[in-house]
Amino acid sequence: MPSRTMTPAMSDAFAYAIVRMVVAVIQVLPLDMGDHLCRGLALALSGPLAIRRRIMVDTLEKVYPTASPEQRRQLTLGMWHHLMLMVCEIAWAQRRLHLANWTDHIRLSGNQQILATSLSRRPSVLVSGHFGNFEIGSYSLGLMGLKTLAIARTLDNPHLHDWVDRFRSAKGQRLVDKNGCAPVVDQFMREGGALSLLADQHAGDKGLWVDFCGIPASCHKALALFSLTNEAPMLALYTRRVDGRPMQFESAMLEMVDPLADDQDERSTAACESVDSLTHWYNRQLERFIDLAPEQYWWLHRRWRTPPPRVAKRLEKARALSSNRDNQSQTDTQAA
């Protein structure tokens, strides 16, 4: 007797068909109608549906302890609106963002330095995070002719994975699975490529723990190692939506450090001294991203976990030393 349940292959194909139909509907929507739809979905997701509410409440209480409940509620609403609009923008980009009109949608800042660094014969490491519309950021770099390599997890649904891969690689971005990617990345860097990475992925208990937005977070050591071992400049990039308007972005380089530069300031030089210092550096840049538009960060992302006891003790000691140095510096300034 035939089974009445769907096989995994049938389930994957059905899910893929549903997603493609939803995307097809989104692609024909005017921008303003899509924005209104996203605002309605945001109200539902931050209210009655309350997806990942516990994670977001705990995170926002720790990151913004002085904010009122209403301010945190508005931030949650803004984040859901951003995420829904991000999905629409990714769907729209395939048909509405191209070589002839990208300047109507994207305002660049620091683009000369980005291109000069990324198109040189030296390798480079481009770091961003789950902030703004990072997918549009990668897509726009491809429109400018920059070929990048990104490390990503293979999606469980093979049809969706192939479709997402086609979008990401449409303008020149190459993807490699995070499992066993080291030889591919090493070869790419030796050839002078630009490695594009999301720097706020949880690295587990054995990662390098640093304070991110005042809360311990585990970071992958590989990001700093890619830069230091290949003597590659690291660029902190973001692409954020401007004034909440759909398909209107600012894409910018916030800061850059170069392990080989001898003309950068002492702070940037110190950032390149070790894996630890460079990891702290790019996390500070991510914090600066978030300060520009807090509602455009993925607060539902499980970025922060509980560190092992020994790590928590070390971080507390480091905070105390930093606080003492700051207090001493203020005292010396006042005395002077």
Score class of each variant (00 low, 15 high):
G47N: 02
S68Y: 05
R73L: 10
I106R: 05
E61V: 01
F131H: 14
G47L: 00
W80M: 12
L85Y: 09
V22I: 14
L37F: 15
Y16Q: 01
V23T: 05
L31V: 14
A24Y: 02
V87C: 10
L126C: 06
S118D: 12
T148L: 11
R54W: 09
M86P: 04
N133K: 12
R54M: 12
H81T: 14
L97Q: 05
Q27H: 04
I114D: 03
L49H: 06
L97I: 01
L31G: 06
Y139T: 03
R52V: 07
S124M: 08
V19N: 05
D35T: 14
M86Y: 09
I90K: 03
R153C: 03
A44T: 10
W80E: 12
H130T: 11
T117G: 03
W102A: 05
R20Q: 08
V87A: 15
G47A: 03
L126E: 04
R122H: 13
S140C: 13
T103D: 07
T154W: 00
R96K: 02
G142K: 00
R52D: 15
E135F: 10
M56P: 10
Q71H: 13
L99I: 00
Q74W: 06
T59G: 03
A152T: 14
A152D: 12
C38D: 05
G34T: 09
M84S: 10
R107Y: 01
V22N: 04
A44C: 15
L29K: 06
L29W: 08
P30L: 08
L126T: 07
V25N: 07
G132Y: 11
H105G: 04
L146C: 07
R72D: 08
S46E: 10
I90Q: 01
V87Q: 06
I51C: 14
P65C: 07
G132S: 13
L143A: 09
L155D: 07
G110Y: 07
F134I: 04
L37Y: 06
L126H: 03
L43D: 13
D32K: 05
R54L: 13
G110C: 06
W102G: 03
V87P: 00
A100C: 10
Q71I: 04
M86Q: 11
S120L: 08
D35N: 13
L85R: 14
Q27W: 01
A67T: 06
P30T: 04
L60D: 07
M86I: 04
L108I: 04
V125M: 06
E61T: 05
I136G: 01
Q27G: 10
D35K: 14
S138R: 15
V23Y: 03
R153I: 12
T66A: 11
N133A: 09
L155F: 02
C38H: 08
L99Q: 02
V63I: 14
R96V: 00
H82R: 12
M56S: 13
R53I: 02
L99K: 00
P65K: 01
Q113Y: 03
V25P: 12
A24W: 08
G110M: 09
V57F: 06
S128M: 15
E135A: 11
R122C: 03
R153Q: 11
R52Q: 15
P69S: 08
E70G: 09
W80G: 12
H98W: 14
L99Y: 01
S46W: 09
R96Y: 00
E89K: 11
T103V: 10
I51R: 15
